[in-house]
Design a protein around this nucleic acid. Structure first.
Lengths: 209, 209
DNA sequence: GGGTTTCGGAACTCGCTAGTTCTGTATTAG
DNA sequence: CTAATACAGAACTAGCGAGTTCCGAAACCC
């Protein structure tokens, strides 16, 4: 040992005004809002700075480019990637899916996805990120839920798991991104009741006839 | 009657070089290709003129703006809107759907849809058009096919027709636009066999078990 | 205080694209 | 022939957006 000069790098505590860390959040929030409102192409760095109430220099001091800002803004939009461990086992596929109903795609992330989709087309880096966040992750979750149900013996034999796992993300994304309509909890419920459950377990919704 | 000077306007047959009508097609084809390759934002009028082998002035002499060119290029991409009358009654839902398998979204229109979707975000006029061509039209066709099947008595009772009619367009658009993968005839077939038919008629694909 | 860094804000540079205009040539009617 | 139109191609205008730089003020360390 050479005394108290440890491996820990001496933080020289430089002089000068300290960076206001809270601005990071403000800027990222503004970024997410603007992507949601106008899409990636429509989001300008001027607009981000204005909405965040900062100068553009402040933005560029923290993120070197529009792409990197976008990537960070989306990745740090936490609570979006759910895994099987976030969904408590309710004992039935229906219960598991219903508990997801509201959480998946709550409110404002709706528009974010749509706007970000445009970004994915323009920039391959954003595209990769979009795919991980919005495509792979959701498919994987659905797939895991279906496997859990299969272990319970709930599923019909001969199911094409991949296809069935894709239905809900596809129906929701289609309604949102392609058709441009709102995705309500009711809609999601309808997808589960009328499509996923009948296919997976054979349960059919109540028919009064 | 006042003689041969009818209501038909005398075509004064003006002097000067005649407009080469064949250029219209060349320009529209170039437009469609470029939208498919680069999306609406990525398509430039310079690129259209260059690929069409014309000057920009020639393009602007025929279409006053990028938006109008795009609209025309997409609308005149004929053979895209299929109605129930284009699908001969094969006697079964499976047969009707299978006969659509290859036709729907053949080859190059794949990329066009994807590129045009971006345009729909930017310009409301293009958006409306996109919706008519790619959303409403396809849903309506599927819906009509299902109704035909219902009249045959093929369908299970208590079916949510709207949901089922949406599945195929949603799965295809999702794979194409969101996931960014190719939509092969095999994939479409899988959607029909494993999702649409089981839901609509209860037919399940062969299981060797 | 003096040196240093951050701040918001504004004024820039630079490249790209929609749309226009010009240039020289070809085509057509009278 | 002449006048009018269309053509390919290039030069041009005008606006917008990413990224940079400079300003005066504020905050921080010594």
């Amino acid at each position: 040992m050479l005394g108290n000069d440890e491996d820990v790098v001496e933080i020289p505590r430089r002089p000068g005004r300290r960076r206001d860390e809270s601005k990071d959040d403000v800027i990222m929030t503004a970024t997410r809002q603007l992507i949601a409102e106008r899409g990636y192409e429509g989001m300008t760095m001027d607009a981000v700075a204005e909405r965040a109430g900062t100068g553009k220099a402040t933005v560029y001091r923290r993120w070197p480019s529009k792409v990197e800002l976008t990537v960070d803004a989306v990745v740090c939009g936490r609570g979006m990637i759910l895994t099987i461990d976030d969904v408590p086992d309710t004992g039935s596929l229906r219960g598991d899916l219903m508990s997801l109903r509201g959480i998946q795609d709550s409110g404002r992330n709706d528009a974010l996805m749509s706007g970000l989709h445009a970004a994915a087309q323009s920039d391959p880096q954003v595209g990769k990120l979009f795919h991980e966040q919005f495509v792979t992750a959701r498919m994987a979750l659905m797939y895991a839920l279906l496997e859990r149900a299969q272990e319970r013996g709930e599923l019909l034999p001969g199911i094409d798991l991949e296809m069935v796992a894709t239905i809900a993300p596809a129906m929701i994304a289609y309604r949102k991104v392609v058709a441009g309509k709102k995705v309500s909890a009711e809609y999601t419920e309808r997808v589960i009741e009328h499509l996923v459950l009948p296919l997976a377990t054979g349960e059919r919704p109540d028919v009064q006839a």
